[in-house]
Simulated assay, not measured.
Amino acid sequence: MSDLRITHIGGPTALIEVGGWRLLTDPTFDPPGQRYTFGWGTSSRKRAGPAITVAELPPIDAVLLSHDHHGDNLDRAGRDVLGTARTVLTTPAGARRLGRNARGLAPWTGTRLQAPGRPTIDVTATPARHGPPLSRPLTGQVTGFALTWEGQQHGALWISGDTVLHGGLRHVADRLSVGTALLHLGGVRFPINGPIRYTMTAAQAVDLCRLLRPHTAIPVHYEGWHHFHEGREAIERRIAAAPADIRNRFHWLPTGTPTRISS
Rank of each mutant, 00 (worst) to 15 (best):
H67E: 15
H67G: 15
D68W: 10
D68V: 03
H69I: 07
H69E: 11
H69R: 15
H69A: 15
H69M: 02
H69V: 01
H69T: 10
H70E: 07
D72V: 03
D72W: 13
D72N: 15
N73W: 14
L74H: 01
L74G: 05
L74D: 00
D75M: 10
D75G: 00
R76G: 13
R76N: 13
A77M: 10
A77C: 11
A77L: 14
G78A: 05
G78N: 06
G78R: 04
R79K: 09
R79G: 14
R79Y: 00
R79L: 06
R79N: 03
R79H: 09
D80A: 14
D80C: 11
V81Y: 07
V81M: 09
L82W: 10
L82M: 01
L82N: 08
G83K: 07
G83Y: 03
G83W: 03
T84P: 03
A85D: 11
A85L: 04
A85P: 13
A85K: 06
R86A: 15
R86D: 15
T87F: 05
T87Q: 14
T87L: 15
T87G: 06
V88R: 01
V88Y: 03
V88P: 10
V88C: 06
T90W: 09
T91A: 07
T91L: 06
T91G: 11
P92Y: 08
P92V: 00
P92L: 00
A93M: 12
A93H: 13
A93F: 06
A93N: 13
G94M: 06
G94R: 09
G94Q: 12
G94H: 09
A95P: 12
A95N: 05
A95Y: 09
R96E: 14
R96D: 10
R97K: 14
R97S: 14
R97E: 05
R97G: 07
R97I: 09
L98S: 06
L98Y: 02
G99E: 01
G99W: 01
G99M: 03
R100W: 11
R100P: 09
N101D: 12
N101K: 07
A102F: 09
A102C: 08
A102Q: 11
A102M: 08
R103E: 11
R103C: 05
R103T: 14
R103L: 15
G104L: 00
G104W: 05
G104P: 03
G104S: 00
L105R: 01
L105M: 04
A106K: 11
A106I: 01
A106C: 08
P107K: 07
P107G: 07
